[in-house]
Write a protein that binds this DNA or RNA. Structure first.
Length: 220
DNA sequence: GCGACAG
DNA sequence: ATCTTGTCGC
């Protein structure tokens, strides 16, 4: 798929923060997705003591969830992990993998937060805005926000609240398994996002979110 | 000031 | 993220 050049990329948190505050207003929190025919899962890992960033993308047909295309990228790591600035570390590698795809996915599941972020601009929002594609943030652990106790049964969920604002939800994708944290990335509403996450995770496990892509990287 | 902190 | 033994639930 075609990728727009990332003209200005941050080299420090001050610059990164400016970019986040500048782009956050572009996030669309309502459904603006086409018929979802292809869903992509993206996962990022590291090699050589974090010197190399590796991103893997798996494109699945929807709702069958059959693997139809995959891509992997490996580039030098250029930004450290700093809570609140994850996208600046991971997105360069993600874009490199995505541009190899023939298929342009209709929806992308990201491993990280979307709106459930201190400045309401987590990885999923950032990627969605850059690509102008629907994205969902699916994180394996809590970053910000609070929620009521969550029953252990599959399907149960609770809103994630931060400063009197609903920023996402906690979702039990499987009974007796750690919940996941779902938030809007771009061009999708929270209820719709929850719906797609549940459907996508029926075949592929959870809390491992985008584990498909992870495995693809190893059997290449 | 102190603690917490997606991956 | 990554490493790794013991423990729990079905």
């Amino acid at each position: 798929m075609k990728i727009n050049l990332m003209d200005n990329w941050a080299t420090n948190t001050a610059e990164a923060k400016l970019i986040q505050e500048q782009l956050k207003d572009r996030v669309i929190t309502q459904d603006e997705l086409k018929t979802v025919q292809y869903v992509a899962g993206v996962d990022v890992g590291f090699q050589d003591n974090y010197q190399i960033t590796q991103a893997a993308v798996a494109v699945l047909s929807f709702p069958q969830l059959e693997l139809v295309e995959k891509a992997i990228s490996q580039i030098p790591t250029t930004f450290p992990y700093i809570p609140g600035y994850l996208s600046f570390r991971e997105i360069p590698a993600i874009l490199e993998a995505l541009k190899q795809l023939k298929i342009t996915p209709d929806l992308i599941l990201c491993d990280g937060q979307g709106l459930a972020h201190p400045r309401r601009f987590g990885l999923a929002c950032h990627l969605g805005v850059l690509l102008n594609l629907p994205t969902i943030g699916v994180a394996k652990s809590l970053f910000i926000g609070e929620h009521e106790e969550l029953p252990s049964e599959k399907g149960s969920w609770q809103p994630l609240i931060d400063k009197d604002e609903t920023v996402g939800l906690v979702l039990r994708s499987r009974t007796n398994v750690r919940p996941i944290y779902v938030s809007i990335g771009h061009k999708i509403s929270l209820p719709t996002a929850k719906d797609y996450v549940m459907k996508c995770l029926t075949k592929y496990r959870l809390p491992e979110t985008t584990r498909w892509a992870d495995k693809l990287a190893s059997d290449k």
